[in-house]
Amino acid sequence: MGNVTKTAAEIQLAPARQEMTGPRGPKPGRTLSRRNIMIYGTLIVVSLYYLLPLYVMVVTSLKGMPEIRLGNIFSPPVEITFQPWVKAWAEACTGLNCDGLSRGFFNSVRILIPSVVLSIAIASVNGYALANWRFKGSETFFTILIVGAFIPYQVMIYPIVIMLREVGLYGSLTGLVIVHTIFGMPILTLLFRNYFASVPQELFKAARVDGAGFWGIYFQIMVPMSLPIFVVAMILQVTGIWNDFLFGVIYTKPDLYPMTVQLNNIVNSTQGVKEYNVNMAATILTGLVPLTIYFISGKLFVRGIAAGAVKG
């Protein structure tokens, strides 16, 4: 009954609707346009190109040695066996130790956690101070730090060896943690400084009027607002430190080698037969940590990188 009464405007507008001719409404799109075929074709080819090695690795790691010797690297395993995985994790020998990659894994974890926590904690405070508490010479300090990001690592390797030796930390995990923390500093400070600089200055002023001090503002205002950038920093550091080989092999000794170094030693051992299945399993095991990190936080990673990039 409600639509019996029409307003004057409706009565006037109604005929106009019917008179419309020609195109109207959303423009129809073609799903199979030449452009779409190009885009999706390229994407599929590229992703196959990247996924193929992973496929070969997984397949090989699930085969027994007799099957591998047949030479069909692309064929799926006839008989699935997890023995290579067990061997890679717990039995493979490097030097005198025959407890597999597990030793390297736990070494890596013991390096990773303190390095990531320490470097992010220090760099975020650095970035916060540089962005919000401009002190005399802060710009100079920042410039020096940035220059540090462009100095090749190789230049500093030997001096650091000497420095660690002098303080008695050479060959220890603590020494390696310190090295990772220092080398992460320039890029992380830059990341945090740019992020905090993009936080409205008035927020910082309001907090000062509200009586919050240096640490009060940092912990109560800045940190809760900066989850994305902390995740980005964490991803950068976890993958960077986990994948590190050079520092691990230089600054530690065989008992304390991180997983990457141990993987290399397993794969490159010259004695006996090449156990491709064990090597493949070991490699996948080593790569699993960064892979997991990317899968969990990929979205935040992109968001954080973009947030840091807008203001420089």
Binding site: E202, L203, A206, V209, I221, M225
Partner: peptide, 11 residues
């Protein structure tokens, strides 16, 4: 003090 951008703590 009251600011132009409100400056409310978002969290």
């Amino acid at each position: 003090m009251v600011f132009q951008s409100y400056a409310l703590y978002p969290q």
